[in-house]
Design a protein around this nucleic acid. Structure first.
Lengths: 215, 215
DNA sequence: CCGTTTGCGGATAGGTCCTCTCCGTTATAG
DNA sequence: CTATAACGGAGAGGACCTATCCGCAAACGG
């Protein structure tokens, strides 16, 4: 009967290429990215996407789960670090690096699957621990909550000048834009340190963001 | 001959409604906003837009000029304040309030008109004065440049949770989201104060952003 | 009260772009 | 060399967007 899988290696390579391309395109174009654009970026045909996922929605849900796993990994790494502040910075930096912000733009446009809700719950728990530890050590300003920082990550993670330039093919200034972005992130993180006047408005409710991840 | 303008008042009202609606929709949807959406938001027909502007592009260019005038006004107000830091905060807050960030998403998608380039030059000069004054007074960390702050404004000005919720009609949490946003902006501004470790990467070139506004 | 003029809304033509399917082609294991 | 898993891309069908056109409503002078 079935002799063997003739093009198995190529299929595996395409799997990976698709996931990488999807992250890049989603980061640059947000939730409006088209399947065609992602496939082109990965150097494969569109059929290759639809052979693996029944619909675009299912594809994006899978990407959400993978991204959530990166959040979880970042939080675990952060907790493993001895320095509470360093751990928190690691988490935020990692989230912005792998494009955790693009996740935010997906949330709300893609129905939440069971798998997604589960992964989110796990990541949320770890994240709270990381923030709590920083608070206890006194290295994080007392009037800031984990939701505040989540919002900050989401905002800073949106399509930035870097992605805009990359999309337009203007590579001359890419490095400068990347450096500028790092500086901006550091500025925002410095605003999280203790020693600043107290924040306006009451702290946001804890479920302000998380309700987007429940089914 | 021409007796008089029969429906002049309504026309004037529509003019204003269109501009207001355009700002709101652009803020929520970015540069991809459709004319139909803007007209609907203003409660007018599409023809009303095209009676005033020949093309969508011309409409958006006009909006850019109006927005740039708001930037100029904000900078002038900031310079008129006695407190150098307060003046800078005023500028940033005003820019984020009136949706200066949506301007950033227009830059690059709309050809730069002469009027736009001129207004930008004027606003840029005022902005530099405002930053220079803060630097001289020592109330702004020395290693931050005006481009850094521009980038921060652009990033924080992009479609936020507030706009996402508004677009989906979820008004229950709008006030909480608005408060959370104010807190986030204050956190970022606190990061601009003196007394933090020095920033990574060299300062961005002064024309990193401004070249988008030259013809 | 009527005629004229001005501005109005929305249907729609024409075009772009997107999702998803179908089918002839290509690469590999035996 | 054959059988077959996996491939790429053209295209059907539909959503949506810009810009136009036309019948209608409102304001004013006489």
């Amino acid at each position: 009967m079935a002799r063997k899988a003739p093009r198995h290696a190529e299929a595996e390579r395409n799997d990976q290429a698709l996931l990488i391309a999807a992250k890049q395109v989603l980061k640059a174009e947000g939730a409006r990215a088209s399947v065609a654009a992602i496939a082109a970026r990965a150097g494969v045909g569109m059929a290759t996407v639809y052979r693996r996922y029944r619909t675009k929605e299912e594809f994006f849900q899978r990407l959400c789960v993978l991204a959530l796993e990166q959040w979880i990994k970042a939080a675990e790494e952060g907790l493993r670090m001895d320095d509470p502040w360093g751990g928190l910075v690691h988490y935020v930096s990692a989230a912005l690096d792998f494009g955790g912000g693009s996740l935010g733009s997906l949330a709300g446009t893609v129905p939440v699957s069971e798998e997604m809700a589960e992964a989110f719950t796990r990541s949320e728990g770890l994240w709270h621990s990381l923030v709590a530890r920083a608070h206890e050590a006194g290295v994080l300003r007392a009037d800031v909550t984990s939701v505040d920082i989540d919002l900050l990550i989401e905002q800073l993670g949106q399509a930035s000048l870097v992605e805009h330039l990359a999309r337009q093919g203007r590579t001359e200034h890419l490095d400068e834009a990347r450096g500028a972005r790092q500086r901006m992130i550091m500025i925002a993180l410095d605003g999280l340190r203790p020693g600043h006047p107290s924040l306006p408005a009451p702290p946001p409710p804890t479920d302000l963001l998380s309700r987007r991840w429940s089914m």
